[in-house]
Design a protein around this nucleic acid. Structure first.
Length: 955
RNA sequence: GCCGAAGUGGCGGAACCGGCAGACGCGCUCGCCUCAAAAGUGAGUGGAGGUUGCUCCAUGUGGGUUCGACUCCCACCUUCGGCACCA
């Protein structure tokens, strides 16, 4: 073998003898890391160039908030991203890996109040410190495109977006009950209220409801499009969370007329149950409540409304709570059958969803069912069960011959149980399936029933068998008649207000009385018999034709509330004029600057409210005196478009970013960040992009093509890191002691990136050892050869080299950094041993060392650069092409053939790779282990799997 | 309650599409080196038994499918995350 051209895939260099004098003795990360970081900056290695000749790759990691100190969590999010970005670059892409700072937000303001530091000063000091800390990571960030969101040059464009959205009807102001955080003293978007105690996403304080006039973005205009993930490759988890958050419901809007003549609009997902609507329920806050309440009910209604107001949302929304409500004295008319039905108010109906009013169909809605039972409201099944189930309890003493009934049941194939009913004696608990059984059973009851008794069948059929015949419960009137008769027969049931209430007292019947299936329509006038699959569609069409309803789609998603009653944010660029009303600030007047001389007092109120200079302005329309909007924007607005800003930060043109550069870089190819933003930032930024598209700023639909969510790094105690717990790991200390490369690599080695996991201070020592061994094997002297290297040894070394290139490549592609490092460690262990053999004097050794350094480069950029220079690779290792592998060279020449007898490993044979299956079968059957374990048995079968395992089946 | 993810040695975790369970690392044990220690380095390390180049048991629990199951199916338990009277 001769070196140049000996193999096109080899990364071979002229063979080089190392001498002790040029040998670097020790790996000292503290020396090499700053050295190379400086060199990278000085040589402009990571300056951004829009190079049309290269394929671009926009790799983005969620921007950090300017908290002041870089946390190991930042490293956990950023170091693996950098590794993947560096890998892409070596693969030949023009990689854009920008960084910036999310710089507006309440902590800055709190610092101002507490310590008298201006938020701007506090923030920019933090930015400076974080920038310094970030630079120790040795990442390939495009610092030349950094953006800080609190600078006027940036927030001018955030305000510009507000104006554009306003112009396009996507921003509006409305008085509404909104969530307010008493700790942060500001309103929050619905997405920023978390957990079952409804706490503020930032500070954890439970929120309260307030009626305020606030600015909203019409994110709901895009609800359907936001539910479409077909154009992006995002994790299932995020897609599910966003889908659940938006929650689309398809149904119908139906108008019910009140007896007073008012229109009462309700939304229902079950228009097919309209004939079963036996009462209406309004949210206590519903605007019609006051108007409709009759004088007799007034006191009770007022009391209930007041009490509902007093209650917190958590109390109100507790699902296990007993239903409460009050009849308001008024009636509505069911448009499908003209039936007069009472109107109630109850707090289980929420003003914030649908129309704040519902038709109650107690037979097919769990909540309505509970409510009807409690208040004695009528219940009529109008949808047939789909499971065909019916039940019947043959009461003790109600039939002529219980044993004869049992015998007949057995003949009919009906299941029953004979059990005592209280102290009354034995009864039969009968469960029926299907029409035929039910009919036969009713006939049997009819024949057996004693005078002065009745029995009933409930479920798919509701039939009451009296001594003079059976009566079906197929209308409310029939129900009343049946109940009256039952009361006459057996006085103990006289307290029941409805037939269902009577039946509900029997535990055995409960699961048969109510269901929410889509079944065939029953008891529904002309629609009776409409099949379940088409019932909803047919009824909706008919409603539309009748002019009393129409198809409707509702979302759980609310419009995005963006007003914040804080100073440290981008001021909403709006002006209030007594003459002209709400007037937008003209584009040429942007940015609306935050006044620097604001006073920060612990009043809880925004200093802007009292700042005369800021507050007073002139109306852009009429020139008269006017007031500015004092609310600022949700900081999620800043981060909704930052990846556009990075393309040309603080752009001076007439749009927010350079269209030319945008065309080259956008959209983001790969985004990484925490899952906690699933229904906030990640939803808002999708909305922004769609709105930007409709405004004509971009020509694509989604901001980020691929997304990966990393997990969370925990303290050594497996708890969330926090100062109070004292389990915080400081990256600065790690850089100082073990180096950035070891810290980066350890974070990637902990486990799967998307799972996160606890920090382990001994674990990182292992990585440090690994790096020392890499250093040693590359820089240490090669022992004198003891003989000639054999072709076999050379092939073995090249095999593992090429296998490792393949493994590492595949792992980085899939963000499996932990197994990537395991592969590198195995590889390093191998070549450390090989170094003492004659192969260390062959070109294959050079290939191995070069490959090792190149494969380590994305993960540990500094040590790789130093070692690359040492082996004469030239500057820079990060500009080298990623090593390629040869399948041919990576192929195993021998494999371990596993011999199993009945699924248990009984022998292992070393055989040449690629033998045909029957050959493998033969070898396996002849093996020592096979013979021993099949003795006395007959070999029934032998299965060859994957060319490396034979399972012999012997009986 | 509903939806989703996950349960593998002392620990973090490997195991491609159903085919050698425990890669790699930490820790631990015993060597070497050293006056000694640290560092480094060699060997071992799932459990139980044993006649010590042997057997059995093991991937949360219990069933099932299969020649063969950490992997697929059913039920259950536990943990974590999201949603929660959404009409």
């Amino acid at each position: 073998m001769s070196c140049p051209g000996w193999d096109p895939l080899s990364n071979c260099l002229p063979h080089r003898r190392f001498t002790m004098s040029e040998r670097k003795i020790k790996y000292v990360p503290q020396e090499i890391e700053p050295k190379w970081q400086k060199r990278w900056v000085d040589s402009g290695l990571y300056s951004t160039v829009e190079d049309p000749s290269k394929e671009k790759y926009y790799f983005l990691t969620m921007l950090p908030y300017t908290s002041g100190d870089l946390h190991i969590g930042h490293w956990y999010a950023m170091a693996p991203s950098d590794t993947a970005a560096r890998y892409r670059r070596m693969k030949g892409y023009n990689v854009f890996f920008p960084i910036g700072f999310d710089a507006f937000g309440l902590p800055a303001e709190n610092a101002a109040i507490k310590r008298g530091i201006h938020p701007h000063t506090w923030t920019m000091d933090n930015v400076a410190n974080m920038r310094r800390q970030l630079k120790t990571m040795g990442a390939m960030w495009a610092w030349d495109r950094e953006a800080v969101t609190c600078l006027p040059e940036y927030y001018k464009w955030t305000q510009w977006f507000f104006l554009k959205f306003y112009e396009h009807g996507l921003a509006y102001k409305q008085e509404a009950p909104v969530d307010f955080c008493p700790q942060c003293n500001t309103t929050l978007a619905r997405e920023q209220v978390w957990g079952d105690d409804r706490h503020c996403e930032r500070c954890g304080t439970p929120v309260v409801k307030k009626d305020l006039n606030q600015w909203f973005f019409r994110i709901t205009n895009y609800a359907d499009e936001l539910l479409d993930f077909s154009k992006i490759d995002w994790p299932e988890r995020v897609r599910v969370m966003q889908t659940n958050w938006i929650r689309r419901s398809e149904g119908a809007d139906v108008v019910f007329k009140t007896e007073q003549g008012d229109d009462m609009l309700i939304f229902t997902t079950r228009p097919d149950t309209l004939w079963g609507a036996t009462f209406m329920v309004l949210a206590p806050e519903h605007p019609l409540v006051d108007k409709l309440t009759t004088p007799e009910q007034r006191a009770q209604v007022d009391e209930y409304v007041a009490q509902a107001r007093r209650q917190s949302d958590i109390e109100r929304e507790a699902t296990d709570k007993e239903k409460t409500g009050v009849f308001i004295g008024a009636y509505a008319v069911n448009p499908v059958n003209g039936r007069r039905i009472p109107i109630w108010i109850a707090d289980y109906v929420l003003m914030s969803y649908g129309t704040g009013a519902i038709m109650a169909v107690p037979a097919h809605d769990e909540r309505d069912f509970q409510f009807a039972l409690k208040f004695g409201l009528p219940i009529l099944p109008v949808i047939k069960r789909t499971d065909g189930l019916s039940k019947s309890l043959v009461f003790p003493g109600s039939v002529k011959d219980l044993s004869a009934v049992e015998g007949k049941l057995g003949e009919l194939g009906i299941t029953w149980e004979r059990k005592p009913v209280g102290a009354l004696g034995d009864g039969l608990f009968v469960t029926l399936h299907g029409e035929a059984q039910t009919d036969a059973y009713i006939a049997l009851l009819q024949a057996q029933i004693l005078p002065g008794n009745w029995n009933e069948v409930v479920g798919t059929r509701f039939a009451f068998v009296f001594d003079d015949g059976a009566r079906e419960f197929d209308s409310l009137e029939a129900g009343e008649a049946i109940l009256a008769r039952c009361k006459a027969i057996w006085p103990p049931v006289r307290d029941n207000r409805t037939l269902m209430e009577m039946l509900y007292h029997l535990e055995f019947y409960r699961d048969a009385l109510f269901h929410a299936d889509y079944g065939d329509m029953i008891n529904s006038g002309a629609f009776t018999g409409t099949p379940g699959e088409s019932a909803k569609r047919q009824v909706t069409a008919w409603l539309k034709q009748q002019g009393v309803g129409d198809l409707a789609v509702r979302y759980r998603l609310h419009d995005w509330l963006i007003s914040r009653q804080r100073y440290w944010g981008a001021p909403i660029p709006m002006i209030y004029c007594d003459h002209c009303g709400i007037v937008p600030v003209p584009y040429e007047d942007l940015p609306v600057l935050l006044p620097e001389d604001a006073e920060f007092l612990p009043t809880g109120e925004s200093p802007l409210v009292y700042h005369e200079g800021f507050l007073n302005t002139t109306c852009p329309k009429c020139g008269g005196p006017a007031k500015r909007e004092t609310d600022t924007m949700d900081t999620f607005m800043c981060s909704s478009w930052y990846h556009y800003a990075y393309v040309s930060p603080y752009y001076q043109g007439d749009v927010p970013f350079d269209p030319e550069k945008g065309r080259y870089w956008l959209p983001v190819d790969q985004y990484t960040g925490g899952i906690e933003h699933a229904t906030m930032h990640l939803m808002y930024t999708r909305f922004f992009t769609k709105a930007m598209r409709d405004i004509g700023l971009v020509d694509f639909d989604e901001p980020m093509k691929r997304l990966f969510n990393q997990g969370m790094i925990l303290g050594e105690d497996s708890e969330k890191m926090s100062k109070s717990r004292g389990n915080v790991v400081n990256p600065d200390d790690l850089v100082a002691t073990l180096g950035a490369d070891a810290t980066r690599a350890y974070l990637m080695f902990i486990g799967p990136w998307d799972e996160g996991g606890p920090w382990n201070s001994l674990g990182i020592e292992g990585i440090s050892r690994f790096l020392n061994r890499v250093w040693e094997v590359v820089t240490g002297p090669i022992p004198e050869p003891k003989g000639q290297a054999t072709d076999k040894d050379v092939a073995a070394l090249r095999r593992i080299t090429h296998q490792t290139i393949r493994r590492v490549t595949d792992d980085i592609e899939h963000f499996q950094f932990n197994t990537m490092l395991a592969a590198l460690m195995e590889y390093n262990n191998y070549i450390v041993k090989a170094k003492n053999t004659p192969v260390a004097h062959t070109p294959a050794w050079d290939e191995a060392v070069r490959s090792l350094v190149l494969l380590v480069a994305p993960t540990c950029p500094h040590i790789a650069e130093e070692l690359w220079e040492f082996i004469g690779g030239g500057y820079s290792v990060h500009q080298q092409p990623w090593p390629a592998w040869s399948e041919e060279l990576a192929k195993e020449e021998a494999i371990t053939l596993i011999v199993q007898i009945n699924g248990k490993v009984r022998d292992r044979l070393t055989v040449p790779a690629g033998l045909p299956d029957d050959e493998l079968k033969k070898l396996a059957l002849e093996s020592e282990g096979a013979k021993r374990y099949t003795e006395g048995l007959t070999v029934v079968n032998a299965i060859v799997a994957g060319g490396r395992l034979v399972n012999i089946v012997a009986r």
